[in-house]
Amino acid sequence: MTVNWLLFLPAVVLLWTPIALLQGKKARHRVVDIGWHGYWPRTFFFGLHWFDLVRATVGAALLCRATAVDLIQAGIDAHPSLLLRAGVLLVGALLQCRGHLEPKTIHAPFAYIAGLVLGSLYPTVAVFSLALTLVLAIGPGLPGAFFPLVTLIGAGLGYLLESMTGLFDAATLAPALVAPWLLTFLLGKPFSSTYRSRARIEITSPLK
């Protein structure tokens, strides 16, 4: 197994940094299964989510390059590299599921998982997988289904568009994608997500 450590180590730092460490005073948690009317702008434009998306995308891309292997030439010798990649991605996803502001829920790392998809799969497969998943999960109001759906759709499209190479990439990524969803069943906790709190306007007396 050959690993490019100059790419591997930065990838691990990006992927394994828990998002809970970066949540500031302006972050608030809300269970995803309850109504989000009035919260969407503060969620979508929350800079922490965009940072999560970018760092997961970059980290996953670096990891894939660091553990790249020719499946046809390597054959069974490719398995250690793929297992290492899958393990790093899985640990990274699990580390994002704990939000320090709301320990009684499972933090739903939507942006992080989307970043893993963008950084690990072929661009066409990744974009169409995320688009279909959003339509099927977020549209009907089933946000928790995002994780198993993107896993299945990514594997299906990976095989259809990129044959066995795409299927192996999706299979390597699958444990990380489905892990948050499985945690909700194993721990019996609901998903929650973060949004930006409203700025408080303090009125001070002009006599002070």
Rank of each mutant, 00 (worst) to 15 (best):
A108H: 06
H79Q: 14
H107R: 12
A170D: 05
S192E: 12
L71Q: 05
G35E: 13
L152F: 14
A11V: 00
A93T: 05
Q73Y: 07
V150M: 15
V13C: 06
P123G: 10
E102A: 14
V69W: 01
A171S: 13
R55G: 07
L157V: 02
A176P: 00
L82T: 00
F45A: 11
S205Y: 07
F147L: 08
G38M: 06
L95T: 08
G99I: 05
P190D: 10
T2A: 13
K104Y: 10
I201C: 08
G141D: 12
A11Q: 01
L22Q: 08
D33C: 04
L53A: 07
V135M: 13
G119H: 06
L62Q: 01
A199C: 06
L161R: 08
V117S: 06
A179M: 04
C97W: 11
A60S: 15
L94P: 08
L149E: 03
P190Y: 08
P206D: 15
V32M: 15
Y159M: 13
V58C: 03
W181P: 01
A176R: 00
L160C: 08
L121Y: 01
V125W: 02
F191Q: 02
C97E: 11
A20P: 03
L82G: 00
Y195G: 07
C97N: 10
C64T: 11
G92V: 01
F46R: 03
L21E: 14
I138N: 02
L207H: 11
G188P: 09
A176D: 03
L116Y: 01
S192F: 04
G59F: 01
A174Q: 03
G99H: 06
A61L: 10
F8A: 09
A137M: 03
K104G: 14
W181T: 00
L90W: 13
V135I: 15
L186K: 12
V135R: 08
R198Y: 11
K189R: 15
L173Y: 06
F191Y: 14
G47F: 04
F185M: 08
P190M: 05
G119Q: 03
G119E: 03
S205C: 11
F110C: 10
